[in-house]
Design a binder for these strands. Structure first.
Length: 508
RNA sequence: GGUCCGUUCGUCUAGGGGUUAGGACAUCAGAUUUUCAUUCUGGUAACACGGGUUCGAUUCCCGUACGGACUACCA
């Protein structure tokens, strides 16, 4: 594939949806694999839905995810500007061209008139399009009005739109890289608005014009665009660009985990998982949504998970670095059907990535909490703690959640465990154990274990009987990392102090 | 309603005219461990339905059902 140029073209109407991240990822993977160019274009032609901060959010999200932009908003490039609102005159020029060649026309119908037409067709149970080859001659437009009338309306600044004149009864065929041939009869398509009355283009026109001018080779976008793809083909044809038309690939949608329909913010909220890459507060409603980043998802794990939602390499390997995704990716192996979003699998990916990190990398997850608690701790100890914890965490924040026992002695003890396992024998054992510990110069796992066994022998108590109470005394709870490791990390002094405290506090 | 797209374990999916229909997540059981977790072993679990084509269909074709998208001067 020569000269691969792909684009991710979101509209800044709010936070970037996780499905959008996947679309961006697939574009990016193809671009990198083929040595092509990844373009970011902002489709902000709807002035009413513009949300301040959304564009910046998109940029930040992609950056966090590791999806690099080669050309476009925030980066610049030979086809600037990349924000559609700044390209108005370009679209006007091509709209005019379509009018001049007879493929588009002015329309002056009011909202009420359009509504009346819809109503009429509905009452007649007609499968006719609301505004198309069968109905356009009953409407108020430059096909039904005289040239003088049209000119006068325009001169009087009467609001108008420009509509595409879709031909009657023509088979429009396109090849989708994922779905194969798709054929639609043009009689099923209506005369879509190309230019709105505010002088802005609609998605359809802007998208085709920009993809052509920006020399886009592959349009990889969500399946929701499939029904309008034939319209876009028609636009390429009427603008004389059919030979340069990009290849299309319509991606299956991300569906909600249970029930029906596509994944929405509501479902995510209900199930308690994020749907946006980063934290987001909607400036219109002040509604706050937690992001994947802030929830502790590693970008590489999230991307790996997303990549596999609708695509797979055909092997049994599932853990893929970005570099591996780039080499293995192919549009042909993208599934045709929608994929349900299963957050449990995402968690599993996160855990896998976290576990694979060296202790030195893990320790950075503990640093902020330590700083916040004003705790000074040598780096080797932090690394040791993280390594003790690595098999038991799914998220970075788990390191502090489970690791704080190393910094704070327990002040309360699991009452159930106390009543079940704490007794006079245990106390006797622990007192002896402290004495034996005192004799040790070096506190490390093996030595401690031997000491426990030795103490068990002399005191006549089975060592299994005291492991749980010992853990209880040191951590206040019933579960945690390896006990010997805990003692080794706590050190002799702290271990003895905690045992003494428990012995003094807990009822026998 | 119309148009388009789809349908393999609960979920993500591999496969493909003859297979014990494979893997992963989840789930269950066992083993290991001082606990929980991890790890290991094993188990439950799927080709939506009906017709055709064929010696043979889960795989190809057609219907039906179900699901999804679209049907805006939103993208």
């Amino acid at each position: 594939m020569k000269g691969v140029r792909v684009r991710f073209a979101p509209s800044p109407t709010g936070a970037l949806h996780i499905g959008g991240v996947r679309t961006a990822l697939y574009n990016f993977l193809l671009a990198r694999q083929q040595g092509g160019t990844m373009i970011l274009r902002i489709e902000d032609t709807d002035q009413n839905r513009f949300v301040p901060g959304a564009e910046n959010y998109i940029l930040e999200s992609l950056k966090w995810a590791g999806i690099e932009i080669d050309e476009g908003v925030g980066k610049g490039g030979p086809h600037a500007p990349y924000r559609q609102s700044e390209r108005k005159p370009i679209y006007q020029k091509y709209a005019k061209q379509l009018i001049d060649t007879g493929h588009a026309y002015y329309a002056f119908d009011t909202e009420e008139e359009l509504e009346a037409m819809r109503e009429r067709l509905k009452n007649q149970h007609s499968s006719e399009q609301q505004y198309g080859s069968g109905t356009r001659l009953q409407m108020k437009n430059s096909l039904t009005l005289t040239a003088e009338e049209v000119n006068k309306k325009i001169a009087d600044s009467k609001p108008y739109v420009i509509r595409l004149k879709v031909p009657a009864n023509e088979e429009i065929q396109l090849t989708d890289l994922i779905r194969g041939e798709v054929i639609v009869n043009s009689s099923q398509m209506d005369d879509k608005v190309l230019m709105k009355s505010d002088g802005m283009p609609t998605y359809h026109l802007a998208n085709v014009v920009d993809d052509y001018l920006m020399k886009i080779s592959h349009v990889i976008r969500g399946e929701e665009w499939l029904p309008s793809a034939p319209l876009h083909v028609l636009l390429y044809r009427f603008l004389g660009w059919e030979k340069e038309m990009p290849r299309f690939a319509h991606l299956p949608l991300l569906l909600k985990a249970d029930g029906n329909g596509k994944l929405s913010k509501r479902d995510a909220d209900k199930a308690g998982f994020p749907i946006f890459p980063l934290n987001w507060t909607d400036p219109r409603t002040n509604e706050f949504s937690k992001g994947f980043r802030e929830s502790g998802y590693l970008p590489e794990a999230l991307l790996n998970f997303l990549a596999f939602l609708g695509w797979n390499p055909g092997t049994e390997q599932e853990i893929f670095s970005m570099a591996q995704l780039i080499t293995s990716f192919s549009l042909e192996r993208i599934a045709k059907h929608g994929a349900r979003f299963d957050i449990q699998k995402a968690q599993w990916f996160n855990q896998q990535y976290l576990k694979a990190k060296p202790g030195a990398d893990l320790s950075k997850y503990l640093l902020p909490s330590l700083a916040h608690e004003k705790i000074n701790c040598p780096p080797e100890k932090i690394i040791k703690i993280c390594e003790a914890l690595r098999e038991r965490v799914s998220f970075p924040q788990d390191f502090w959640e489970q690791g704080k026992i190393f910094f704070f002695a327990p002040v309360s003890f699991d009452p159930q465990l106390v009543s079940k396992k704490w007794n006079a024998d245990v106390v006797k054992f622990l007192s002896q154990f402290i004495n034996h510990l005192e004799e040790l110069n070096l506190i490390e796992g093996n030595g401690v274990k031997q000491t426990i066994e030795k103490t068990a022998q002399t005191s006549g108590i089975a060592s299994e009987k005291i492991m749980q109470p010992l853990r209880l005394a040191l951590t206040g709870g019933a579960s945690g990392p390896d006990l010997m490791m805990i003692i080794e990390i706590l050190g002799k002094e702290e271990t003895i102090k905690r045992i003494k405290y428990a012995v003094a506090t807990l009822p026998v």
